[in-house]
Design a protein around this nucleic acid. Structure first.
Lengths: 102, 102
DNA sequence: TTATATTTGACAAATGATGTCAAGTAAAAT
DNA sequence: ATTTTACTTGACATCATTTGTCAAATATAA
């Protein structure tokens, strides 16, 4: 079970890119990218999109990893976590079906 | 598909309680409670726990509704929403299995 | 050692969450 | 029809979190 940070670091190193190079492409300090890769800071959605570009990763996949990381972290300490996810899925479906109408 | 706000308002009214009474029990201004009930503001976790008490609602159930509301709202605009939830579920399981060990 | 890459922690700025307050509206009671 | 009561609204204040910068510390490699 990989985190976004691990995915990013692995791919960055396999491409032989430096923190400073990637960070400059994202327009952030390399300190932040270093922290993102070690899950000490969270990326923004914009960071993720740019990362997918420069690291040649599938944007959709990376976004899924990113958002699911956030959610998992958010509810991991709840003992009703899996019930929460089931109910959330129903609510999302409901919201989406209404988006079409409105 | 009910939101937490709708659940709270329905139960408060069925108990014949006023916004001001419930709000004072939560130690917040009634304006906030009014907004929470109409989903214009989000409750805190503490609010929810106190609401379950005073409205005689099951605490676990209400928390599930509360957190799933948050998550659904958070990802409703993503078109990969249901994939996100599936991956999140796996990650939660993984995190939980490690919590036992550490 | 020297150079290069990464990490760390202190701090600043921007954003978002949480709350107060007072004036506004709506409905019911007098 | 006025007054009272309950609720709603929006402007604003305060506080916490997020997001970032910077420089010094630490590793890694020439």
């Amino acid at each position: 079970m990989e985190t976004v940070g691990q995915i990013i670091r692995a791919k960055r190193e396999s491409l032989g890119l430096l923190l400073r190079q990637v960070a400059s492409y994202l327009d952030i300090d390399q300190a932040i990218l270093s922290k993102i890769e070690r899950n000490e800071r969270k990326a923004t959605k914009g960071n993720i999109i740019k990362l997918a570009e420069i690291l040649k990763l599938d944007k959709e996949d990376l976004l899924v990893q990113f958002i699911s990381d956030r959610i998992a972290y958010e509810i991991a300490d709840e003992d009703c976590a899996s019930k929460v996810l089931k109910v959330a899925e129903q609510k999302v479906k409901y919201l989406k079906s209404n988006l079409v109408k409105n």
